[in-house]
Design a protein around this nucleic acid. Sequence first.
DNA 1: CGAACAGTTGAACTGTTTCAATCATTGTGG
DNA 2: CCACAATGATTGAAACAGTTCAACTGTTCG
Lengths: 245, 245
Amino acid sequence: MNPLIRKLERFTRLSDEDKRLLQQAASARIVNYDSHQDIIAEGEEPNDVNLILAGWVCRYKQLADGGRQIMSFLLPGDLCDLNIFLLRRMDHALGTLTPVAVAKISRDLLQEMLNADPRLNRALWWEVLVTAAIHREWLVNIGRRTALERVAHLLCEIYVRQDSVGRVKGGRCELPVTQVELADALGLSAVHVNRTLRELRLSGLIDWRDKHLSIPDLDALTAVARFDPDYLHLDYEGERFDAEC
Amino acid sequence: MNPLIRKLERFTRLSDEDKRLLQQAASARIVNYDSHQDIIAEGEEPNDVNLILAGWVCRYKQLADGGRQIMSFLLPGDLCDLNIFLLRRMDHALGTLTPVAVAKISRDLLQEMLNADPRLNRALWWEVLVTAAIHREWLVNIGRRTALERVAHLLCEIYVRQDSVGRVKGGRCELPVTQVELADALGLSAVHVNRTLRELRLSGLIDWRDKHLSIPDLDALTAVARFDPDYLHLDYEGERFDAEC
DNA sequence: CGAACAGTTGAACTGTTTCAATCATTGTGG
DNA sequence: CCACAATGATTGAAACAGTTCAACTGTTCG
């Protein structure tokens, strides 16, 4: 099933018409990318909203001195750039981490979707606000936690987010990124991420190989990371809108 | 004049009716706070949107180990929590840094404003998206820049944001926060912020006293900070919506 | 087979933190 | 109006978390 629909239904009930619209949007114009390509570069003027259908994408900024900061990992079902309508130029880039399939949703179609039903409108804005909430938590993670907590926290987040859309099976989920990419997301050096992962591995808290992450005891890792999933707003918070037509 | 109107007009033209609505919202229910109080705590369910009329506010998360991370500085004209409608519980707190006057905008009034005119609706969402853009830049700042760059970058941002709403006079703007609060915003220790400020002061790049910041040569500080104001989206980007009714 | 890339480890180094003491300023109650 | 408490700023010295550089291993893939 369309992973966007699945995700939005965590938030609110959608009408059949809403789902039809979403489904149509997700299949209208599909573009495939290789690994490590830009979907859109910083400074460009976007024309479409990108809905990730398959593969992993990151939101990042490249710095003049060669460093870069990854600001989000985007997974299947995630939308980028709902802001297209409002902010003219991209202040960051979107790049693929794996081969990726993206549905391009045109400005007009998106507008139609936003107008179609207040519930769908709210569900899409909910997605924007949750993304912002994740950014805030990353700020805490990078600003105030030790390397061990930071790495553990990010792994918890990735695991829980995937679990929430049914992408965890037997305590195991995808993690198709390199250690360098993790480091770019965490504000750490790749070397130190490596050492930190070793520490987590030796403590039996994680098992990461073949681009898949296993967390044998999520509570234990959660404790190490001081991870509190509230910021992901995954509980069904939209029920008060269900009654509305 | 109402600082919110002033700010939104950087983005798009507002009708007289829009301005009347905003003005009404900003004067309906005004609440005053002392310094260092919570306007709303983490975990609470907000009922109103807060529009800052006077004073400085910060968005922050408190950590179990005593540390805290400040995620935004909110100035007069800034809105907090437009997300009230969608995310039930606060995943962060809002606290005052100075005595503050806030206009409480009820859920219903906000809804009325959002429905009143698509242009006003867009202007308010623009405000949300710019806040998110600032969070992304802070992520880069904390994750990838040295202490000197970080401090300089934040000072540039504060200065430019105030300049954009006419709160800079003679190269001088308000900065009524303590070094500890700056440190909490930058992911640094207060001691190191102090040393870094000294360095900036001795280089003649800043002059900060009596809760006011002077930047004698903004270009020079910008260069030190590697500051690029694009992320503030301050150029008039909404003109393509002006034609619409 | 060799090239390219990702991961791993050691050793030296450094930016930042921590702890602790001192100084300056402001507000408050007697 | 002074004393003194409270808060914020400042500085030094020692400790440490994380970086950098460099070498080496393992794996994949044309």
